[in-house]
Amino acid sequence: MKWFGKCVDYFFTGMGFGAISYVCILTFLYPGIAPTIRETTSVLIISGFIGLISMIFETDLPMSIAIIIHFVGTFCLFLAMALINPRWVINISTIVVFVLIYVIIWLICLLEQKKTVNRINDRIKKRNLK
């Protein structure tokens, strides 16, 4: 059951990143274009699957291999999303936006991990001082 809970957590985290990315793209790159039910649903579901792919980072694979697998899997799911949504076009600019968003999300995750590690280290220091 613990494994299922972890999967749900990763799925919803992926949905969150996907929803935020989608809203930002619509707001800043395509202002005035309303999202459709099909687009929103596909973004949420496929972003959830991208979140599940992120579980690869909890394996014993070398980080470089895990990043490559995650990036390729994420890009394939992004292409599937584009095929599901007829208004979406795949060209060099959408690929650049995809890579940019991928890097931004990575930076956010790294900053969050750094913050967590610092908080844990602070607690350890406080406990050792007592």
Score class of each variant (00 low, 15 high):
8 V>E: 08
79 L>K: 07
29 L>V: 01
79 L>V: 08
9 D>R: 14
15 M>N: 09
47 S>D: 02
125 K>L: 08
93 S>M: 12
56 I>N: 10
88 W>S: 07
13 T>V: 12
106 W>S: 07
118 N>K: 13
92 I>D: 02
98 F>R: 11
101 I>C: 11
5 G>F: 13
48 G>Y: 04
93 S>N: 12
93 S>W: 11
57 F>S: 02
64 S>F: 14
116 T>M: 14
5 G>D: 08
55 M>C: 09
50 I>P: 01
81 M>N: 10
14 G>K: 05
9 D>W: 14
56 I>D: 05
74 T>Y: 10
108 I>S: 10
71 F>I: 06
115 K>D: 15
15 M>T: 11
65 I>R: 15
20 I>A: 13
120 I>A: 09
14 G>C: 10
104 I>V: 15
3 W>S: 08
108 I>A: 13
76 C>Y: 10
12 F>E: 04
107 L>E: 15
59 T>A: 09
43 V>F: 01
39 E>H: 00
73 G>W: 02
101 I>T: 11
60 D>K: 14
48 G>M: 04
78 F>Y: 13
44 L>I: 09
68 I>P: 04
52 L>A: 05
26 L>H: 01
61 L>W: 11
42 S>Y: 00
111 L>W: 10
58 E>A: 10
60 D>L: 11
7 C>I: 03
36 T>D: 00
106 W>G: 09
121 N>E: 11
118 N>M: 12
30 Y>G: 00
19 A>C: 07
52 L>M: 07
6 K>W: 07
12 F>H: 06
71 F>Y: 11
80 A>R: 09
60 D>G: 13
15 M>A: 10
67 I>R: 03
42 S>I: 01
87 R>S: 08
86 P>I: 04
84 I>V: 09
88 W>D: 06
55 M>E: 08
89 V>H: 07
31 P>K: 00
63 M>T: 14
37 I>F: 05
87 R>I: 08
60 D>T: 09
109 C>Q: 13
41 T>Q: 01
58 E>Y: 11
58 E>G: 12
72 V>R: 05
75 F>P: 00
60 D>M: 09
24 C>W: 03
76 C>I: 14
14 G>H: 05
107 L>M: 15
114 K>V: 14
92 I>H: 02
95 I>K: 05
116 T>V: 15
10 Y>D: 12
47 S>W: 00
62 P>F: 13
55 M>F: 13
11 F>Y: 12
87 R>V: 07
91 N>I: 06
8 V>D: 09
